[in-house]
Write a protein that binds this DNA or RNA. Structure first.
Lengths: 144, 144
DNA sequence: TTTATTTCGGATATTTTTATCCTATTTATA
DNA sequence: TATAAATAGGATAAAAATATCCGAAATAAA
C-alpha cells in the first residue's frame, strides 16, 4: 500500500511526537532503533518531512528532531503520506491510466473510488496525537 | 496500490475475456497494443496468470491466450491480484511490522483493517465479466 | 514430415526504490 | 574562539521491479 519510506516516516513521526510531549529532541539513530529501520535511510526521510514542514529539525549540538507539542493533534496521517509518497494514492488511476475520470474511466474507476475515498478519509481523520497516545499507553507497537 | 505488473495483468485479462466471448484467442502482441503495455513484460505476466490457472494458453500455430467463456463470470479480480501481487495486500501490516495482529497491533492496525476489508470485498465481488461488458459497451476504457 | 506460428522460459538490461557512506554546515557550550 | 555534537546533502551501492532479447518447445496445417 505505502512505500517502505512512508512506513518509516509514519513510525518516525509517532516516536518524535511521543518525545516532543516531554520536550525531548531525538536523533535519527534513536529513531531508527526505536522503529527498527535503517538509520541513514531514515535520516533522508526525516529531511523530506522537514522540507514539507511536517516536523522540525534543530541543527548543531543539542539539536534533533521535534514537533510542536501543540501541533501534534493537528498533524494528520495524510500530511505525512503526502510528503513522502505524494498524492498519487489519492489521485492516480487504479490501473495506471494517464487520464482516468468520470468521462473516461478505467474499468475499475467507480469501484476503486469507494475504497480510495475511504482510505483518504481515514488518513485525513487520523491525527498523530491519537497514534502517539496509543503507543504511550501500550495499546499499539512501533516494532515487533 | 497495485504493482505495474498487476495493472497490466488486470487489463490483459479483460481484453482476453472480451475476445474469448467471440471464440478468439489473442497474442501478447495484440494484448500489449490494446492495453498499452510493454509486450515482453506483458508476456511474462500472462505466463504467471496461466501458471495460476486464471487464464489458459494454447501453444503453437493458431494458439494464444483465452479463458473459458463460461468461467468469465466466476473469475474475480481478487484471483488476478493474488496471482501477480500475492496476498500481502490482504494480510500484510500497513506499517510493515513482521507481527501485527489484535494482540500486538501496529499504530494503524484497526483503521487500516477497515480500508483493507473494503478493498478485499471489492476485489472478491468484482467479476471479469462485469469489467469486460463495460469495456464492450464503451462505458470504460483500457487505455488513454 | 516439414514449416510457420506461437507460447515458454532463461539470461540480461534498465529503472526505481531502498540503503549506505562521507563530508559540509550549523550551533550550543566550554 | 575552539570544540564537540548535530542535521544536511551529495555520491555511491545494493536490491527489487520493470523491461527486453533470444532460443527452445509445442502445435496446427500444408
Amino acid at each position: 500500500m505505502f512505500s517502505k519510506a512512508c512506513e518509516y516516516g509514519i513510525k518516525a513521526c509517532i516516536f518524535i511526537a511521543i518525545n516532543s510531549y516531554e520536550g525531548k529532541r531525538v536523533s535519527p539513530k534513536e529513531i531508527a532503533e526505536e522503529i527498527n529501520s535503517p538509520q541513514a535511510f531514515t535520516a533522508k526521510i526525516l529531511q523530506a518531512l522537514v522540507r514539507h514542514k511536517v516536523i522540525n529539525s534543530i541543527k548543531g549540538a543539542y539539536g534533533g528532531f521535534e514537533v510542536s507539542k501543540y501541533e501534534i493533534k493537528n498533524i494528520k496521517l495524510s500530511q505525512i503520506v503526502k510528503a513522502i509518497d505524494g498524492d498519487n494514492i489519492y489521485n492516480g488511476c487504479g490501473l495506471g491510466l494517464e487520464k482516468c475520470d468520470e468521462n473516461h474511466p478505467c474499468p475499475v474507476h467507480d469501484k476503486f473510488k469507494v475504497v480510495r475515498d475511504e482510505l483518504k478519509l481515514m488518513l485525513e481523520n487520523t491525527s498523530l496525537e491519537e497514534l502517539a497516545l496509543n503507543i504511550k499507553s501500550g495499546a499499539s507497537f512501533l516494532k515487533t
